[in-house]
Design a protein around this nucleic acid. Structure first.
Lengths: 341, 341
DNA sequence: ATGAAAGCGCTAACAG
DNA sequence: CTGTTAGCGCTTTCAT
């Protein structure tokens, strides 16, 4: 315990409030606010210096909770993803946190574990914590999303193409990306191209990547290859691929709708002693770092995580509805060894 | 807009406060608190029912910020990791969030990007947000950690063996784990075992896994194999392994001190057309899901993420200093194909 | 069993 | 340029 100028001071221990700083600097609490926030009123240079000195000596840290109560904003963004350990979402969450931090916002991320009820709870929790907006990769249907009670907190949908009335969407153009990936395989001469698709909670919803695969095949005059639905995990990709290999006729190429699925597929293929890409070629979707270091490295349809992060945060923080539309971001085909180039 | 019992109600839009609920239910705000929190005062069954009805109709969500101000706790835990996209930390963060959620706490996670200054900023940010505790995988030295002004907020160190006075530590027993992994390689007959180690910001600090490797080698009467320091990334593992392969004498086995490093190593090995485990065996550390799906699947020293999460949250939330010590958790050797078993 | 009111730390309108 | 004060939404003591 230290005594400074007759005041009892315990740097770093108990909570130091703005009142302590004011007393130490011999000013009112308002003045402390003015110097901390640079306004709204001017403060004499000498006074400001005394306040700053007091802040330093007392190791004062403003209480963001109190500030949030007063201001009606905690400068906090919320985010919900279906699987926070999926590298794609891990990278995306990180990117969004960086962009948000640059604007002075922190990111409170939640994991719905691909469960509707958990997502609802996550949403309620974020709402009660007064986040300024929620960036949401939902597992709910548009009508269910619309029905959530969010106290007027803005939301931004990511990672899907369907739209919810009044809720802006920022997403990769899954369908076009899938078209590009499958066309690349077709360009290699493949006629029998399978697809691995994530199973959706809502069976009526179709993955746009599935549509893109169909489109590319149809446009090339090819018949649709086998389709395997599975969990959006490495294990899911592994199991789906094993089922694929048990079929009477083996496809010559696989389009996996995520890196995770592709990584699982690779293992199944290796275990079956198949050579990649000679016996069977693989193209995946996402372009996470993991796809770069698999064996063989995956040719992949890369989503631009940075652009999504930028656009999502901008949409989340823009109060004007000028951005109330759906934004579709382009993909980039990354050529590596798994396609046979 | 809806009118209920003469009151103007807009479910889901503007903020509904406890005052609105009280008015709608025809009670005082105190009573609303009593029924929401189940105390501290009893409420007549009929009154409670009216309040609950009002909450439902108005879609009232308590304001956690205001509650935090009053209670002095936001029921929020903070966490800082050096790389949130490293699957190990992604899985650990998720596990901690689950454990925290079970106790009614949310988790605010930050990424220091292995940068000391960023970690300091992250810490300050969490402190000002009044988190109840900070779970920290630090890149700072013990004295630097101790020097941080944290306003008395408790911290728990994870992912390291060194201790900071007064700060409890929960960590895997890195050294023993490394010993087990290297011994396994020795048991396979390897005499020339290299190690891949993460480069530390603080060069004076040695990775306990490095020590474990030395110990196992010494105890077996073997000379130390080559050591490669590198970034704690897949790319880092890749580059380190390429350097390893350029050396005059190639080791017959590699101990990688993380899955990420091992995955990078695998790619370098494949590119060099080396057969794993025949030409060169690999054992890694962590036991993330990624290690299970690489080719070949990695024999790995698994950290118990769930135990770490449990212990870290318990330590973070226990005010008594009974847990003020260092806890070292045991590892488990997972045998897969990369070691040659 | 219920209500009135103080107070958590901060901001900003208003007054000097 | 500086100070006083009301109020953000909630909890809880103290009255009734």
């Amino acid at each position: 315990m230290v005594f400074v100028a007759g005041l009892q001071v315990q740097p770093g221990s108990g909570k130091v409030t703005r009142t302590d700083v004011a007393r130490y600097a011999g000013v009112s609490t308002a003045v402390v606010s003015y110097v901390i926030n640079g306004g709204p009123k001017p403060v004499a240079a000498a006074t400001a210096a005394r306040v700053r000195e007091a802040i330093k000596v007392l190791q004062y840290q403003p209480n963001a909770t109190a500030r949030a109560l007063t201001m009606g904003s905690a400068r906090l963004l919320g985010m919900i993803v279906p699987d926070s350990t999926n590298p794609y979402f891990a990278e995306l969450t990180d990117a969004i946190a960086q962009v948000a931090a640059a604007r002075g916002y922190a990111l409170l991320a939640a994991n719905s574990r691909t469960d509707a009820e958990t997502e609802r709870q996550n949403t309620l929790s974020l709402v009660s914590r007064q986040v300024d907006a929620i960036i949401l990769a939902t597992v709910l249907s548009p009508s269910e999303v619309a029905a959530m009670p969010v106290q007027g907190i803005p939301r931004v949908l990511i990672d899907q193409s369907s739209t919810v009335h009044g809720v802006p969407t920022v997403s990769t153009d899954f369908e076009q990306g899938a078209v590009a990936g499958v066309q690349h395989l077709i360009g290699h001469g493949h006629r029998d191209i399978a697809i691995l698709v994530g199973r959706d909670i809502d069976p009526s919803r179709v993955d746009p990547r599935h549509n893109g695969w169909k489109t590319a095949l149809r446009d090339a005059g090819l018949t649709e290859g086998p389709v395997e639905f599975t969990d959006f995990t490495r294990q899911g990709g592994y199991e789906a691929t094993r089922r694929l290999l048990e079929r009477p006729k083996r496809p010559t190429a696989i389009f996996a709708s995520s890196d995770l699925l592709a990584v699982g597929a690779l293992l199944a293929l290796h275990e079956a002693d198949l050579s990649i890409p000679d016996d069977i070629a693989v193209v995946s979707f996402d372009g996470t770092s993991e796809s770069e270091f698999s064996w063989p490295p995956l040719t992949t349809v890369r989503q631009s995580i940075n652009l999504i992060a930028e656009a999502a945060v901008r949409a989340a923080l823009s109060s004007d509805d000028s951005e109330g539309k759906a934004q579709l971001l382009a993909t980039e085909l990354i050529i590596r060894r798994s396609c046979g180039c």
